[in-house]
């Protein structure tokens, strides 16, 4: 947004004020996320920059909180770090267990949400779909309905049908919460999808299955993967439903963080937060690259 040459002095002042205001708002958006990264290397159990950290004294920084993530919950954290130490960490460390649970639940709920969601999005984007608007509204609603209501409903329902405290229950719940994201991203990819391609495939003798895997799937794949990543993040970040329907020993990373923040907040939380921020940067990059690829495939050029 370049300032025109004929701008009055007042307009010039306002223009620079406006840029400063925008800069401050961007700072407000990003600073809270980046601030945890240096603080997680704090050598002291504080949540603020110590004088040593500010003067970049190496002794002010340490990896002790990352170390704690591994050792917390281990049976023998103090023995020399050989193979058995690592296998102990893999099997007993609380955060490692939580990470394993989170990944298992996230993986299966993502698969479930993506498969069902993609099929439904294909149906929903057909012009002849009956009751399209109403069905779409129902399928998107898990994103809109307050999470506490979802968790309350599932708590009653699951304890009645015997799904409470099971992995299947949590996976189903998380899949439900991830579905709206899959539907939104996949239908967005299907907007402007050239249906003459499928007709051409049929015309050339392809069965509907072949057409799906050879023609439709490669074109919508970027959208499907973005949707899957959204669904995974939703599951990976979900704590309320887990608190309500999971068993006590079914800890996940968000649940462990939730407990940590509620009870005794320690810089170990910040090191988890840092790892999660790095994961989200990686995910964001992937989704952005996929979006560009999808635009390119569909012939929408980036000007």
């Amino acid at each position: 947004m370049a300032l025109p040459k004929h701008a009055s002095p007042l307009e010039k002042i306002w223009h620079y004020c406006y840029l400063v205001i925008c800069g401050l708002i961007f700072l407000f958006l990003i600073a809270p996320i980046l601030i945890v990264i240096p603080l997680s290397f704090n050598a002291e159990p504080y949540f603020t920059f110590t004088e040593k950290m500010l003067s970049f004294d190496p002794t002010g920084y340490s990896m002790r909180w990352y170390d704690l993530l591994l050792t917390f919950g281990m049976q023998a954290p103090d023995v020399p770090r050989d193979g058995s130490w690592w296998s102990d960490a893999w099997q007993n460390a609380a955060w490692v267990q939580a990470a394993k649970n989170s990944v298992i639940i996230g993986f299966f709920s993502t698969i479930l949400a993506t498969v069902l969601g993609t099929l439904a999005a294909l149906g929903l984007s057909r012009p002849e779909m009956p009751y399209r608007r109403a069905i779409m509204a129902i399928l998107i609603s898990p994103m809109i309905v307050p999470i506490i209501i979802v968790a309350t409903g599932m708590f009653f329902f699951y304890s009645q049908v015997g799904l409470a405290n099971t992995y299947i229950g949590i996976i189903m719940a998380h899949a439900t919460l991830g579905i709206p994201f899959v539907i939104i991203t996949v239908t967005a990819t299907l907007v402007g999808f050239d249906h003459s391609l499928t007709r051409a495939a049929a015309n050339l003798g392809a069965t509907p299955t072949t057409t799906f895997f050879k023609i439709i799937m490669p074109l919508i794949l970027p959208g499907v993967i973005s949707g899957a990543l959204f669904a995974f993040v939703t599951s990976f970040d979900e704590v309320v439903v887990v608190l309500f329907v999971a068993d006590f020993d079914q800890q996940t990373i968000p649940r462990q963080m939730w407990n940590g923040i509620r009870e005794q907040i320690s810089p170990a939380i910040l090191s988890v937060a840092t790892i999660l921020v790095i994961v989200s940067i990686a995910l964001l990059t992937t989704v952005e690259l996929l979006r560009r690829r999808s635009d390119r495939l569909r012939g929408i050029s980036q000007s």
């Binding site: 990003i30 809270p32 945890v36 910040l270 964001l284």
Partner: peptide
């Protein structure tokens, strides 16, 4: 980036 970052991280 804030949109993709865990809610709990942002609250922390």
């Amino acid at each position: 980036l804030p949109f993709w970052t865990s809610l709990l991280v942002r609250t922390t």
